[in-house]
Amino acid sequence: MDTLEVKQKLFHKLKIGNFSFVLPAIIIFSLFNVYPLFLILKLSFFEWNGISPLDQAKFIGIKHFIEIFTNDKLWWQSVWHAGIITILALTIQNVLALLLAMAVDRGIRGGNIYRVIFFLPPVLSGIVIGLIWQWIYNGHHGLLNHLFTFLGITRFENMAWLADPDTALYSVAIIHMWRGFGWGFIILLAGLQSIDSQLYEAAEVDGAETWHKFIHITCPLMMPVFILVSILTILGTMQIYDLIVSMTNGGPEYYTEVPITRILASMRGENRFGYACARGLVFGAMLLILSMIQIKVSKHMQKDL
């Protein structure tokens, strides 16, 4: 065999030609994503204030991780808050998005206009959203309280929705869901419109009720879309941050703290950069596991349906 042939065989065996398709992605990814990630990983084992030169950082082993898991109640409380908002968003926000999508899918008049209107909140700047909702929620001539008074409910007079520990987190969650349902709506509507209407027609001829059609036609066909929307929701909600800062700044007390505000507090407030990195990695690992479970479970469900 001559050498050229050997080379060609090797080339095919290792699929180098195929590999070159992913090569640009790998180069960019490993340079700009993996390298910084390794630096963060390294720093999570160091005591470093984020200001003085990096070589002055002190190696302390896994002390940061031990602290997170044994002596950081506030951190886990903030994770819990993000969890609550995520569960609310996964259910209420996505159900609302689905209902609205189904209503528009019905071929209702003005469907195209709604498609544009519901996309407005995600596009809007956080500053405008903050100002508007502060005005709605505030206890001093707030819009919501005026509405209750108008409806004859006097219980909530002077209620400051964002300052009450019982309502603050849910009030923020409502804003977040309102801001995010537009994405879900559009993706779900797109999914619904693609379903062959003949399937419904056939089902209706068989006398199927709406509920049956939903379970037996819509659900199985929409499963990949549901996965997509729910992963987007989880990622968007877990990383909620600017809304919290502009609405409550984590207060009252610690009632609306979320992981990202705690990471930033340790990074910039306390000047413990290494600890902030450790917190971020722990949180990232949790999200990763959660998303993997989600993908696995949904794939399983899809097979069953």
Binding site: G139, H140, H141, N158, A160, A163, P252
Partner: peptide, 21 residues
Amino acid sequence: FISGIVSMVNKQGERYFAQED
């Protein structure tokens, strides 16, 4: 205190004072 003071950011507080609330 004005209602809701505990979660009020300074900019919002300034608005209430400026508007004579």
